[in-house]
Nucleic acid binder design. Structure first.
Lengths: 233, 233
DNA sequence: GCAATGTATTTCGTATACAAAGTGAGGAAA
DNA sequence: TTTCCTCACTTTGTATACGAAATACATTGC
C-alpha cells in the first residue's frame, strides 16, 4: 500500500518491484520534518529542551520558512510543543503520557489482531508468520537492533492487514511518539525474553486465526511493556 | 483539563470556572487554522475541491506565511491533502475512509466507556447523566442542532473522565474529521430516534457502572451510525 | 483537423527582510 | 541588600519578493 501523503512519516522505499513508479517529490519542509523527527527519536534533541531555530537552520542549511512549517507539522503530530513567541520544545513525555499511549495502543492492537484474523488471506498470515520466525532467529543471535526493527515491521504489517487506514495512521502516530521509549524496554535480557515469549503466543493465536486470543495477547503484551519501561520514563 | 496546545482543535472556552487562567495567546496561523477548519466543517470548502490560496488569503486578510503554516497543520490532522507544487485540496472521505474511522472510533469509545466506569467519581457520573437528560429534553423539543452539540460534549466528557490524554486526543482527531458526516446521520427522524434509544442504554449502563455493557453499547452505537450515514457518504 | 511541442501565465516553494515580543543584565531607588 | 525598572539584545512572527514548477493556451507540423 503506497503512502500518498508525503507529510506522514514512512520508511518504505520509493521503488516497488517491477515497473516504473512515479518519482516521489519531497518538498523541503517534508525532508526537514523527517530529519527533525529522526533527531528527536535518536536522542540528539533531548525531550524538554528548547529547539534552537537559528542553530538548527544553520546545521540543516535551510531557511526559516520550511523549517518552521516542518515544526508545525511535528507539533500537530505531538512530537514538539510550540509556545507562542517562546519557541518550540521537544515534547517531554511524563510517565502518565507514556501509560496513556500504551493503553490506547494496546487497545488498538487488540482491534488490529481481531480484524486481521477475520480479514487477512492465508498468504498474508503465512508472510506474517515468516516475519515472526525471523524475529526468533534474531533473538537467538541477540541482534537487538535488527530484532527491534523487525518487531516494528511486524506490528505495522498486522495493522495493514486489517485494511483499516485510520487504524494504521493512529498506530503509526503513537509508535512514532513512543519510539525512543520502546527501545529502552528490551534493554534487560529478562525483559527481552519475556517479550519474545509473548510474541510466540501471538504467532500461535494468529496461525489459529483466533482473533480474540490474539487481541488479548497483544493487549497484554503492551501492558507488560509498560511494566518494563515505567521505571525508565 | 486544559488544552495546552493551541494548535489543536478545541471548542472549550478560555475560562474555567473558578480561578484565573493563563491568557491564551493565539498566533495568526493558529487562528487561520481554526478558521479554515470551520470552513471545511461547515461546508464552505467542499471536499475534493482545490483550496485557492490567493483567494482565501485575500478574504482572510493574512499573508501567505501564516496561511501556509496553517495548511500544513491541517494536513497533519488529515483534513486537507497537500500535493507538492499542485496545491492543497480538502480531503474527500471515501465510504471506506468513513467506515475505517467509525470502526476505530467505536473501539476507542468502547475503551473510554470501560475506563470511565472504572475510574470516574460518582459526581462525574452524575454530571454525565445530567447531560444525558438534557439531551432527552432537546430530543423531545426536536432541537436538532443543540442536541447534536450536546451529543459531542457528552462523548468528549466521557473521554475526559478516563484521564487518558491520548485517548482524548485521538477521539478529538477522528471526531473533527467526521464532523460533517455525523451531522447527516441524524437527518431522518427514525434514525434520530434510534440514536436516542441507544443513548438511553448507555446511560443505563453508566449508572450501573457496567463498563463492559457500556463499551458494547457504544461500539454498537457507532456501527449503527455507519448504517445511518453510509448512503450519504 | 488533430496531435504535439513550445511559450506565456499562473501558482507554488523558499529565502530574506522587517516588525513585534520576549529575555536578561545593569543600575537606581527603596 | 533587594526589588523594580529600563534598555539593549535575542528570538520569534509575519510580510514580501524572487526563482521554480506546473498548467493552459496557442502555434506549428503532419
Amino acid at each position: 500500500m503506497r503512502n500518498l501523503n508525503p507529510g506522514r512519516s514512512m520508511e518504505n522505499p520509493g521503488v516497488v518491484a517491477g515497473g516504473p513508479v512515479a518519482i516521489r517529490k519531497q518538498t523541503l519542509h517534508d525532508q526537514v520534518a523527517n530529519r527533525i523527527r529522526d533527531l528527536i527519536i535518536e536522542g540528539y534533541l533531548e525531550p524538554g529542551s528548547r529547539i534552537d531555530e537559528t542553530g538548527l537552520i544553520e546545521q540543516l542549511e535551510v531557511s526559516r520558512t520550511p523549517f518552521r512549517e516542518a515544526l508545525r507539522t511535528l507539533a500537530a503530530e505531538g512530537l514538539v510543543i510550540i509556545r507562542p513567541s517562546k519557541g518550540a520544545v521537544v515534547r517531554k513525555l511524563t510517565p502518565q503520557d507514556v501509560f496513556s499511549m500504551l493503553e490506547v495502543l494496546a487497545h488498538l492492537e487488540k482491534l488490529a489482531g481481531k480484524l486481521t484474523c477475520e480479514r487477512a488471506s492465508d498468504d498474508d498470515i503465512t508472510a506474517l508468520m515468516a516475519l515472526h520466525n525471523e524475529m526468533l532467529d534474531l533473538y537467538e543471535k541477540r541482534e537487538r537492533l535488527a530484532y527491534y526493527k523487525l518487531n516494528q515491521a511486524f506490528h505495522s504489517r498486522l495493522a495493514e492487514l486489517t485494511g483499516n487506514e485510520t487504524l494504521q495512521e493512529m498506530q503509526r502516530n503513537i509508535q512514532a511518539r513512543l519510539k525512543r521509549i520502546r527501545f529502552i524496554g528490551n534493554r534487560s535480557p529478562d525483559y527481552w525474553a519475556a517479550a519474545v515469549a509473548e510474541h510466540e503466543q501471538m504467532a500461535q493465536a494468529l496461525s489459529r486465526r483466533d482473533g480474540d486470543a490474539l487481541g488479548e495477547v497483544m493487549a497484554r503484551h503492551l501492558m507488560n511493556t509498560w511494566e518494563r519501561v515505567k521505571d525508565s520514563v
